[in-house]
């Protein structure tokens, strides 16, 4: 029986990992291609949640979840074109500062527009409740969330591995100088990557709004987790991020099963161990430009 309970936690951890993935994957892509750790990533996540609530008020829950990430992705274009682009070649400290500053500005903007107190958000009652599969209990809503995350994952994988767009991006991650020598500008590709990345973060925010607190500092909460996932997975590695997101979810579930008070600390311990044993991250590749 004990083992079954543990297994239930593992499966639940995988579901949670799927959600972490939505946010971490974009962060990893933007870093891999542009060399910028986007500390404003959490801000786009928060914007996604707030916009989805604003849209849902008029057009319903489904419209909110669809429209909000698209709107944030469009904002991402402006973000890349007018801010991020100036910092690809600059000292990384500068891009950290500017994205960090943007995170603060966005958080305060949210306070000014929507107020400091958390916004209420509910899901349609049809999605409430749980399903029991075998001996396992799943929240119906989280299964949907997992399906969306899986769809996004497949989409991004196909884009990176089966299209000419993806070939250029992958080449750009490994050998930007060669890409340049072949006469290909990476800039437009970067715009698309940033757009996709922040769009995914916003989707994560919109999907999580009905089950967690929607408040101005929610972006700061998630950026720490996303960063941990990216570091554990290894920079530049698609499957590394996937593996790390699932692992963080599972380790948290198992820790809570045995030692509930240590649940939130578990992911940082995991990151610590991974960095000790394999500083490059689980599946991190050797990337010339970062060495």
């Amino acid at each position: 029986m004990q083992l079954l309970f543990l297994l239930e936690q593992v499966v639940n951890g995988l579901v949670l990992g799927g959600y972490y993935l939505l946010i971490a994957l974009g962060l990893s892509l933007i870093f891999s291609v542009g060399g910028v750790v986007n500390l404003a990533h959490g801000a786009f996540y928060a914007l996604g949640a707030y916009l989805s609530i604003a849209v849902a008020k008029h057009l319903g829950f489904g419209a909110g979840v669809v429209i909000s990430p698209i709107a944030v992705a469009l904002l991402g274009i402006l973000f890349e074109r007018f801010i991020l682009r100036r910092f690809y070649t600059a000292d990384p400290i500068l891009s950290l500062l500017v994205t960090f500053g943007l995170a603060l500005v966005t958080e305060q903007l949210i306070r000014i527009i929507w107020g400091a107190s958390p916004l209420p958000a509910s899901m349609p009652s049809a999605l409430k409740g749980s399903v029991v599969l075998g001996d396992f209990l799943f929240s119906r809503y989280r299964l949907l969330l997992l399906a969306v995350a899986a769809l996004v994952l497949v989409g991004i994988w196909l884009l990176l591995n089966k299209t000419s767009f993806g070939r250029v991006v992958r080449a750009g991650i490994q050998r930007p100088d060669m890409v340049a020598a072949l006469g290909i500008r990476l800039q437009p590709y970067m715009t698309v990557i940033v757009m996709l990345g922040v769009g995914m973060a916003a989707l994560g925010g919109a999907l999580f709004a009905p089950i967690a607190l929607v408040h101005p500092a929610m972006g700061a909460e998630i950026i720490a987790v996303a960063f941990v996932v990216v570091v554990i997975g290894g920079l530049g590695s698609f499957w590394g991020v996937v593996l790390a997101a699932l692992l963080v979810g599972v380790v948290r579930g198992i820790t809570i099963h045995f030692l509930p008070a240590a649940g939130e600390a578990s992911m940082f311990v995991l990151m610590f161990l991974v960095l000790l044993l394999r500083p490059r991250g689980l599946l991190g590749e050797r990337i010339e430009k970062f060495e």
Partner: peptide, 22 residues
């Protein structure tokens, strides 16, 4: 262009600073 990201400092430095900021 993005392709000149070679100018970027080591991964370790970015990570360290990033972790601190996060």
């Amino acid at each position: 262009d993005v392709s000149s990201t070679r100018a970027i400092a080591g991964r370790r430095r970015v990570l360290k600073a990033g972790a601190g900021m996060a």
